[in-house]
Design a binder for these strands. Structure first.
Length: 580
DNA sequence: GCCGTTTTCGGCCCGACTGTTTTCAGTCG
């Protein structure tokens, strides 16, 4: 499995939630939350630390360090086990519903014995909540709406969770003797924002050792099917993973078939039929003779159908087949094309690590430039002031001075808050001092369509705002995007020379691929940002790249693939040419 | 529970919004 940090983080978070649900000391719960976040974002694997090393992580003291050591040694954390015994797991699941927190979840359990989302939905239908203190018709409506959101994601899991599992399994199976190829396929390879199940392919002569290794993985909770060509398991976290072993000669056809999408496959197969051919997961065959024509690589198969190889992220039947036939596929941008990150935080606000650590990691990623954009004062909990911001700028300028032309150049920016009426935190003369400004919506997500549209358009029209951060503010599976006339917003971006962010944080992936396609048709340019709150978060960029590719973007569309000179020209915000 | 001390206990990111109340608790960022 990847690192223990994520496991420990999840456990400590669960404990914090359970403390809140049982009405324990809120500050104590907060201490666990803070420690969870710090450990999740810590650059070193906690499994390699002793109690002393653990206590060097901020917000981890003796009590938590001991609990973590115990967990790493025995695999359980007794305090959490006890809390679990007291509260049914379903009660905590209730708090995943927006607008339903620990207090109300506990009340529902105590008064009505509700301990699952389904029971809650039923109770609302039967109007059982109305008589409860603190609940009214509006809460019923809000909770039902929240349940709808949860169910829309259904059994699909976030891309990065699936990616972690897939990376691990591919690494494990690649070690098995006789492995000729091993890779993941399916919607994961297409980088869809959520994934229903994971498909792993292995090329080998003998499948048995792989099937055995697969079912013997430490996080296999259940073996759903066990065969010679296909084996399916369910992981301890409930994710289904299918393994297929095929001969090396079928690799290309297999990858093509299992990568999908279904709609893409149907379209490609139709072309095969037109050529008097037949395409299956085993290869491309002459329909009449059954003679195999191509199968070894995806390139071979596509080429024999008169097509260029299609990047997996485009295989959604959104015009890619036609483009591949015409030789007009876009030259998609790749992670290596990125020259910088334009939206990142430090521990001056809610980041976990100091400026110096973040910059060091940016250098390791080989960036030509790197922007620090901490939060502005109107996100009140961050306690930002002009003085703090100016002190950070001074420090950053100091670090930037004396750098060679090979080093990462540092930009001082800010993530402003877009007010209810489209204003931002500081007046123009203060904003003038920043190299660049991101502006994002962080409050009042429920405004009506006209108000929200005006609000975003006004932010674009601000001459100091260069990038609209996480433009719809959606959280996948938790919060829908704001209601706004996005076409109007996109048009405003194009008109004013404001870039739209593709926020690569796996919980956001905002803009989504559909919105990227739509925005691109308006002539908008994009900033592909990690929104990192720790050094590890900087690596989330791969998910943003996935979204950008799914939106058919090239380097010309993404401002942080540009040279610093071209970027600076764009940041001066000349509406006439948008900096292009 | 953690932290930082006014070194052994008091403060802990702070304010807005919502829907419920009838003066505020719960939730959220």
């Amino acid at each position: 499995m990847a690192r223990s940090n994520e496991e420990v983080e999840a456990l400590l978070r669960e404990y914090a939630d359970l403390l809140l649900i049982t009405g324990g000391d809120a500050f104590r719960a907060r201490a666990y939350e803070k420690a969870a976040r710090a450990i999740g974002g810590h650059p070193v694997d906690v499994a390699r630390l002793d109690a002393k090393g653990l206590r060097e992580i901020p917000n981890v003291g003796k009590s938590i360090a001991d609990k973590v050591v115990e967990f790493l040694r025995t695999g359980t954390m007794p305090a959490v086990e006890e809390a679990r015994a007291a509260i049914p797991a379903g009660v905590r699941e209730l708090t995943a519903i927006p607008a339903l927190g620990p207090k109300k979840a506990m009340l529902l359990y105590e008064e009505l014995r509700i301990s699952s989302v389904d029971q809650l939905a039923q109770a609302i239908e039967e109007h059982k909540l109305r008589d409860l203190k603190g609940f009214g018709p509006k809460s019923e409506e809000n909770i039902l709406h929240g349940i709808g959101l949860l169910r829309a994601v259904g059994n699909r899991i976030p891309l990065h969770d699936a990616m972690d599992v897939a990376d691990d399994i591919v690494a494990a199976l690649s070690e098995v003797p006789g492995c000729q190829r091993c890779a993941y396929a399916g919607s994961l390879r297409r980088m869809k924002e959520t994934v229903g199940d994971v498909d792993i392919l292995v090329a080998a002569e003998d499948s048995a050792p792989f099937m055995d290794a697969f079912t013997g993985l430490p996080y296999t909770a259940e073996v759903i099917a066990h065969g010679l060509k296909k084996t399916s398991i369910r992981t301890t976290k409930g994710l289904q993973v299918d393994l297929r072993v095929l001969p090396l000669d079928s690799w290309g056809a297999g990858m093509l078939y299992f990568t999908g999408s279904k709609a893409h496959n149907i379209r490609v197969r139709a072309i095969a039929v037109r050529h008097g051919l037949k395409l299956s997961e085993y290869g491309l065959f002459e329909a009449k003779s059954g003679k195999k024509i191509a199968s070894r690589s995806e390139e071979d198969v596509y080429a024999r159908l008169g097509m260029d190889w299609i990047p997996p992220t485009l295989r959604e039947d959104r015009g890619e087949v036609k483009a591949a036939l015409e030789g007009s596929l876009p030259a998609l941008l790749h992670e290596s094309d990125l020259r910088g990150d334009l939206h990142t935080h430090t521990d001056l606000t809610d980041g976990l690590e100091p400026l110096e650590n973040m910059i060091a990691k940016a250098e390791r990623r080989g960036y030509a430039y790197y922007a620090v954009t901490d939060h502005a004062p109107k996100l009140y909990m961050q306690q930002m002031t002009e003085e703090k911001m100016l002190a950070q700028r001074e420090r950053l300028r100091e670090l930037d001075r004396g750098r060679g032309h090979r080093d990462t150049r540092l930009l001082h920016g800010v993530e402003l808050n877009i007010d209810a009426d489209g204003e931002v935190d500081w007046p123009g003369d203060f904003l003038e001092g920043f190299d660049m400004c991101v502006a994002s919506v962080h409050s009042q997500f429920g405004q009506d369509r006209d108000t929200m549209t005006r609000r975003l358009v006004r932010a674009c029209e601000n001459p100091h705002v260069n990038i609209i951060g996480h433009p719809t503010t959606r959280l996948i599976g938790k919060r829908p995007g704001v209601d706004a006339d996005l076409d109007e917003v996109f048009a405003a971006c194009a008109r004013t020379g404001t870039a739209l962010e593709i926020n690569a944080h796996p919980d956001r992936l905002d803009l989504s691929d559909e919105n990227i396609l739509r925005a691109k048709s308006h002539g908008v340019v994009f900033a592909l940002d990690s929104d990192a709150h720790s050094t590890r978060d900087l690596d989330h960029m791969r998910y943003g790249v996935g979204m950008a590719q799914r939106g058919w973007l090239t380097t010309d569309d993404v401002i942080n693939t540009w040279s610093l000179t071209r970027l600076r020209r764009f940041l001066r915000k000349k509406p006439t040419d948008g900096g292009r």
